[in-house]
């Protein structure tokens, strides 16, 4: 099958993924992805009718766990806040999500 990679598609992917690309990066990425996905299209010829996807690698199943608090175990509130680029009144300060 055709890989349908084009500059427009790559631009759309970059936009969906919130990734700024320069013009050179866009040209380079389009060229590279065309080649990569052309090679990857080898998987299209494999008959996978009735084959399940392998979403889980461990073979484990879900278990219920006691509802216990472990909040102070790894790091304190202050230690965690200390990681944020900006804080205000004991909270992480970020750029406003909603504008007036």
């Amino acid at each position: 099958m055709s890989t349908s990679i084009s500059k427009d598609v790559v631009t759309k992917m970059a936009d969906l993924a919130r990734l700024q690309l320069t013009n050179e990066e866009l040209t380079e990425a389009t060229k590279n992805l065309e080649g990569i996905f052309a090679h990857f299209s080898a998987i299209q010829g494999i008959d996978t009718a009735n084959v399940p996807t392998s979403d889980d690698a461990s073979g484990l199943t879900n278990v219920m766990r006691a509802d216990e608090s472990h909040s102070q175990e790894l790091a304190s509130h202050d230690e965690l806040l200390d990681q944020a680029p900006q804080t205000k009144n004991g909270q992480v300060q970020v750029k406003a999500v909603f504008t007036k």
């Binding site: 598609v9 992917m13 969906l16 993924a17 992805l33 996905f37 998987i43 996978t48 084959v51 392998s54």
Partner: peptide
């Protein structure tokens, strides 16, 4: 980011991501 977003995006996910997970 670009390859992964493409392989997972609407219209392409069945042919790429899902097919890879089956293989």
């Amino acid at each position: 980011i670009l390859m992964g977003t493409y392989a997972l995006s609407a219209g392409y996910a069945d042919a790429w991501y899902k097919q890879a997970a089956k293989v």
